[in-house]
Amino acid sequence: MGWKFTNTAFNDLFAGLTEDYIILAPKRFVNRGRFSDTDLIRYDEVKKSDDIIWKEKSTFSPKEAVFPVTQTLFYFTEEAFREPQPEEKQYLVFLRPCDINGIRRPDTINLKNGPEPDSYYANLRKRVRFVMIECTESFDNCFCVSMKSNITSDYDMAVRLTDDKVLLEIKNDDFLRYIRSDIPKIEFRPEFVLENKIKVNVPEVDEMPAGVYEHEMWNEYKSRCIACGRCNTTCVTCTCHTTNDIFYDDNSLAGERRRTWASCHVDGFTDMAGGISFRKDNGSRMRFKVLHKIYDYRKRFGEHMCVGCGRCDDNCPEYISYSGCINTLNKVIRETVS
């Protein structure tokens, strides 16, 4: 079922929604971009439709909505532990199909991998609803079609924005009550992008040929990659994190255990006490990440991890193309096999 809004009426809809939901969407932070006189676009709370950046890709992904950068696991005073107060807020996240498919990966890791779900993730995730932003034209570096993440039906509402009107599909009846009776009903089903400029040939091998791990194709990344971790922090599917304890400056008997995002490219990711570490050179970190995104993860969970949002390529300061690397890898595999 669909509704047609004027821009004003759509902003009014937000007034209703914000009573029950915190709305998270790509938002512009003017002049807060990495470089002087550039803007930062990332997910944050918006109060009205006009605050949403509809036509640009956010630097950071919406995974922040379900997986905070820093999360307190519990507080401790001497030997007593206390979890943070359970949060009750409901969240409504505006995001594109690739990101909806993308968040299925953190879901899988946090809810399905291992003996039990991560309770922090589960508790937040169940309070998050999706509004799909219709995406029919891809941005630079997008290759969602190659990763089969261009289409989804996993959303509560979907929205199409045109110059003078907004079309809304509601799949979750809970949201019907926010629609004013004077809003005209129409037939509306969102469309999906069916072709990207960038095409990636994802190798579909059951067993990675052993030669690939040692292949010289990874060597160039030893010097090109600077291990900054932007590809991980902007990725919608990266979920690695590190746990840290801290105690308060004013009282060393009280503190907290918390976790923060971690990056498999950044130094220290594999460090163990006693000085042993793995993947010391940045080439093997690149190999590790790439194979994880398009091979290892699928072996374990049945679908590729990467969804082709292209944020890693958007943000690499060294112009390393991850999608280009997959294409190279595909070629190497074919050569190795034949």
Partner: peptide, 18 residues
């Protein structure tokens, strides 16, 4: 032996291959 933060398959530090 690998670095681990969670022991529960979430933190990713100890992952090798699948």
């Amino acid at each position: 032996e690998r670095r681990m933060s969670c022991g529960l398959g979430k933190c990713g530090h100890c992952k090798i291959g699948e």
